[in-house]
Amino acid sequence: MDIATFLIQVLNGVQYGFMLFLVASGLTLVFGIMGIINLAHGAFYMFGAYVVYWLTDYTGSLTLGVLLGLPLVIVLGLVIERFAISYLYKRDHLYQVLLTYGLILILNEAQLEIWGTNFYSVPKPDLLSGSIPLTENLDYPVYRLFISVVCLAIVAALYLVIGRTRLGMMIRAGASDREMAQAMGINISRLFAIVFALGVALAAFSGMIGAPISSVFPGMGDQILIISFVVVVIGGIGSVKGAFIGAMVIGLADTFGKVLVPEFASIVIYAVMALVLLWRPQGLFGKA
């Protein structure tokens, strides 16, 4: 492997890592703050991708598709939070797993009913469809760089919102002690609805901006959910910082796994997870 190919693989790995972080951060936030294990997270990712396909096709612009589509998926998430998830806050993880498993069945069937079994592709915006030449015969697509930049911006925004704002303060208070926060006058059920919506928004948004580079297909949500689980477990469940490190590790491991040991590519990330767990059973940044 020469140096240029190596660099491109690193870029690909990092970019994939950013995408994974975007999805996994929603999963880990919802767990860390609300104590909910949400298997339907991947289904929201899938819905994001399908909605943006549908709206981009309709309006002819990916930007418009994202802007119109995101609120749609968030509303769907809020409805689900209100009528199903909100009954689970004090229940055992087992019931959370089952109920959200039921949600996946419903959402997957709904997707088949609305969009069928076809694979779709979403065009990149003209402005970002070019590529940057690295060497004479290798170049790197601008859109992938754009995704990394957007993800970085969202990481920074998340960090600022949670660490520096009043809402962030309430979220942290709710996460560390639900009853006490409530006694202090914080409306926990509304706060949780906001956090859940944020998680849904992160999943759907990743599905949306990822749509132009990976096609839109049935079952895409299941795939991303499992990988997000691996990321979250490596980083430590509930830790956003951990999710970031975990996403980078998995992004790079998966990319290089595909290049170096193609026949075992799909197993590499699980092996990495097993190794991390041997060393730290609670993940890199998890609380024991």
Binding site: V233, L277, Q282
Partner: peptide
């Protein structure tokens, strides 16, 4: 060696593997 939610996710990940 893990428990709770970790156990759920890890068994799932191994099964997927």
């Amino acid at each position: 060696r893990t428990s709770g939610i970790y156990f759920i996710m890890i068994t799932l990940a191994f099964a997927q593997m």
